[in-house]
Design a protein around this nucleic acid. Structure first.
Lengths: 202, 202
DNA sequence: TAATAATACGAGGACTTTCTCGTATATGTC
DNA sequence: GACATATACGAGAAAGTCCTCGTATTATTA
C-alpha cells in the first residue's frame, strides 16, 4: 500500500551542504549566461564538479534547482527590504538613494534573477511579483504626499520602478566601466529625486 | 573534389514565400512566449501548419530561424530610424516624443526581440548593438547643446536609453491596461523632456 | 566496532529532439 | 506534353537529455 510514508528529508551533513551550495552556484552561473532552458543537468554537474548521480540526489530535476535558487533570491530580497526598513535613512532623497543602491547591489549579486523570471515556477513568479510590487513604494510616497490619490501614487511608483529597472539592466548586462556605472547610478538618483519631488509638490 | 559548387539559392515561388512567412511568424510567437532554447523545431512546424521536412527545407536549423528573424527585425528597426529621420518633427520635445513612440511601437510589434538578444548569433548581436547605439542620439543632443563634451552627451544618451528601455519593458511584459500604458508613456515623455532640457541648459 | 544513514558515482534505459532522405506532388518553362 | 525545379511530407537514423538504479565510499550513531 505504501500509504502515508512521506520519508523525512535526510539530515544533511556538512558535506552535503557544501555540495548543494556548489551546485546552486554553478546553476546560477550557467542560468545567467545561457538561460534556464539552455542549461543541461550534465553541464551543471560538470561545472560544479559533481557527478550526475549526486546532482540528482539533491535535486530531482531542473525545476527544483530553479525553485531553490528562486527561494534563495526571494529570501535575500526580503532581507534587503527588512534592512532597508530598519535602517530607515532620514529624508526623501536619502531614502530613494538607499533603495536604489540596494536594488542595484541585489541585481549585481544575482545576475541569474532575470533568467529565473522567464521560468514559470511558483517561487519565480513570487519574485516577479515582489519586483513589481508597488504597495510599499506607494506607502512610502504617501507619507511624503498625503493628499494624493492612491491610483496616482501607483502610477508614480510604477514609473520609478521602470526607470530603475532600465538602468539596472544596462548596468548588469551592458559593457560599462566602473566609472560609467556609478555615473549612471548618480544620474538615475538625480532623475528620480527630481521626478518624485516634482510630482509630490504638484 | 566538389570544388566551388555553392549551389545558387532556389528561386522561391509564391508558395514558398508564404510558407517562410508562416514559419517565421510561428517561430516569433513561440520564441516570445517560451524563449529560443525552449522552442522545438517540431513545435514550430506544428504551429505554422508545416511538416518537419518542409521546415528544414527552408531553414537548416533553429539558428537559421533566429538569424532570419533578427535580420527582419534589424531591417524594420532601420526603416523606423529612416522614417524618423525623414519626417523630422520640429523642436526638442516633439523629436523626443516621436522617438519614444517609434520605439514603443517597435517593441510591441516584435515581442520576440528580447528573446533573440539572449541568443548569440551575429545578427542578434547586431540588434543589440543598434539598441544601445548612442551615436545618433549623441548627434541629436549635440545639435541642441553644442557646447557640451561628447563624453557627457554619451552619458545623457545612455541614461535616456535606459529609462526608455525600462518603461518599454514594463509595457511589453507587465499586465497593464491600455490606460495605464499610455499614462506610463506620457510620464516617460515628461521625464525625458525635463531631463534633457535640464541637462542641456545646465 | 558494528550498524545505519548520507553521500558519491556513472552506466545505461527511456524518452526527446534534431536532422536526413527517399518519395510524391505542385509549379513553371519550353 | 515533357522536362526541370520547387515544394511537401514523414519515417526513422543519429544524437542529445533526463533520470534511475545498483554499487561503493564516507560519516554518524550506538
Amino acid at each position: 500500500m505504501d500509504e502515508a510514508s512521506p520519508r523525512p528529508p535526510p539530515r544533511r551533513q556538512a558535506r552535503g551542504q557544501r555540495r548543494i551550495a556548489a551546485i546552486l552556484a554553478a546553476a546560477a552561473g550557467l542560468f545567467a549566461s545561457r538561460g534556464v532552458e539552455g542549461t543541461t543537468m550534465s553541464a551543471i554537474a560538470a561545472q560544479s564538479g559533481t557527478s550526475i548521480g549526486s546532482l540528482y540526489q539533491f535535486f530531482p530535476n531542473r525545476e527544483a534547482l530553479v525553485e531553490a535558487l528562486a527561494e534563495q533570491y526571494l529570501a535575500d530580497w526580503q532581507r534587503m527590504r527588512a534592512d532597508l526598513a530598519s535602517s530607515r535613512p532620514r529624508g526623501l532623497r536619502a531614502s530613494i538613494d538607499a533603495g536604489i543602491d540596494a536594488r542595484v547591489k541585489f541585481h549585481l549579486d544575482h545576475a541569474a534573477v532575470s533568467r529565473l523570471l522567464e521560468s514559470n515556477t511558483s517561487t519565480a513568479r513570487a519574485i516577479h511579483e515582489l519586483e513589481t510590487e508597488l504597495g510599499s513604494a506607494v506607502a512610502f510616497l504617501s507619507s511624503y504626499g498625503p493628499g494624493i490619490r492612491k491610483e496616482t501614487l501607483r502610477r508614480y511608483a510604477r514609473m520609478v520602478n521602470a526607470m530603475v529597472n532600465g538602468v539596472i539592466n544596462t548596468i548588469v548586462y551592458g559593457a560599462l566601466s566602473a566609472a560609467q556605472r556609478s555615473a549612471l547610478i548618480d544620474e538615475l538618483k538625480s532623475v528620480v529625486h527630481a521626478y518624485v519631488e516634482e510630482r509630490l509638490r504638484g
